[in-house]
């Protein structure tokens, strides 16, 4: 854990009633780093992300962002600080066109105080083509687009607004191999722009190709945290489903 980590979570605990969902997790993301956060359903990864996004506070533990201790109490606060979380079903409004989606919640105004539709059209198209995503018009409604194109728009938007950290939930779920490769390109484009990302998935195959570091959660604890070069995909897979029994793990299971 270095001092210039973008995000640093220290000893995060989260109880839901008597359920100990996170048991002292340390988690950090460096500058321009892509971290794959994997684990089975119920391992605690979405709980951890919800703590990071301010959806609920940790029961115990500290959260630092850009070197400052933060207590996000709403998604808006973390958004303002520079953390963008892209849940697949919460990223875009299907019935709205691209330009309106791109600027939703941060609409530019012209001199008359009205929506600057031209600027919205121009900049959303620029944002997409910078990433190599060509769509015929900013007036196209999102429900006309493929899953990969939708991810592309969400990522381009995060890039455009200069978020520091982007959290992608199952970034290539339901996508074809070809489209998944494109989404990986978009994620690499984020890195090139000095942005960081957390990719959440229950399947290591989904995040391994593009992650710099792999973090595995299991039963609310961090059991692996290694650079990608230092770990094989099979090893991670086994850790997720629990073939490797870590120290203390048996005790936990027996309790």
């Amino acid at each position: 854990m270095s001092e210039n980590d973008l995000l640093r979570c220290e000893d995060i605990h989260k109880y839901f009633g008597k359920v100990h969902a996170l048991e002292g997790v340390d988690f950090d993301v460096g500058e321009a780093e892509v971290v794959g956060l994997v684990g089975d359903n119920g391992a605690g990864k979405s709980t951890l992300i919800k703590v990071v996004c301010g959806i609920f506070p940790p029961t115990k533990g500290k959260l630092f962002f850009k070197g400052e201790e933060r207590h996000f109490s709403s998604p808006q606060e973390s958004l303002q600080a520079g953390i963008e979380s892209i849940q697949q079903d919460q990223a875009l409004v299907e019935e709205m066109d691209i330009k309106r989606n791109f600027f939703l919640g941060r609409e530019p105004k012209n001199n008359a105080g009205l929506l600057d539709v031209r600027k919205m059209a121009r900049e959303s198209m620029n944002g997409l083509s910078d990433m190599g995503l060509e769509i015929r018009s900013p007036d196209v409604e999102v429900n006309e687009l493929s899953g990969g194109q939708r991810q592309g728009i969400a990522i381009a938007r995060a890039l455009h607004f200069n978020f520091d950290l982007i959290i992608l939930d199952e970034p290539t779920n339901n996508l074809s191999i070809k489209e998944s490769k494109k989404v990986y390109d978009y994620i690499r484009e984020l890195k090139r722009n000095n942005l960081s990302a957390i990719l959440i998935s229950h399947a290591i195959q989904e995040v391994y190709p593009v992650s710099d570091r792999i973090v595995v959660l299991r039963n609310g604890k961090k059991i692996i945290d290694k650079a990608r070069e230092e770990i094989e995909m099979e090893e991670v897979e086994n850790a997720i489903i629990g073939d490797i029994v870590e120290e203390g793990e048996t005790e936990h299971l027996m309790m």
Partner: peptide, 11 residues
């Protein structure tokens, strides 16, 4: 269109 998305975007 998508209440959760609107909420998430701060709209």
């Amino acid at each position: 269109g998508n209440y959760d998305a609107a909420l998430a975007r701060g709209s």
